[in-house]
């Protein structure tokens, strides 16, 4: 359950940024999660309440923007959507690919007051 580490990492960053902005709480947080980031949305949901309890994020609304994974085939340069990391190129069936999108795991913005 590395999602707990991820959630605690988010809390840590939010605490620092809130303090820096002379605010006391986060009203909303916007996350960006790529579909191949390695974070399961259900697992993150499961640990969220525990992780944010008694922190600046306790009452924050959470918005998540999911980024679809995309890769470029290193053999034929076809760009395609990736559901699983082991997907082959739909055109030439090569497994050599560069996943250029979908591994994001970021805090995009915080709304603090």
């Amino acid at each position: 359950m590395h999602e707990l580490s991820i959630a605690l990492g988010i809390v840590d960053i939010a605490e620092k940024e809130t303090k820096k902005a002379n605010a006391t709480k986060v009203d909303a947080i916007e996350l960006i999660i790529g579909t191949l980031s390695g974070v399961e949305p259900e697992a993150l949901e499961f640990v969220w309440q525990v992780a944010v309890q008694d922190t600046v994020l306790a009452k924050a609304e959470r918005h998540i923007e999911y980024i679809e994974a995309k890769a470029k085939c290193l053999e034929c340069e076809t760009t395609f959507s990736v559901q699983n990391v082991y997907d082959a190129c739909p055109k030439c069936n090569s497994y050599f690919k560069d996943v250029f999108q979908g591994k994001e795991l970021k805090i995009k913005a915080l709304e603090v007051s």
Partner: peptide
């Protein structure tokens, strides 16, 4: 009124690690 501030972070959550 409540003063709200939006902090645009674009910060990688695993950045510290």
């Amino acid at each position: 009124h409540t003063h709200k501030t939006v902090i645009e972070l674009e910060q990688d959550i695993l950045q510290n690690n």
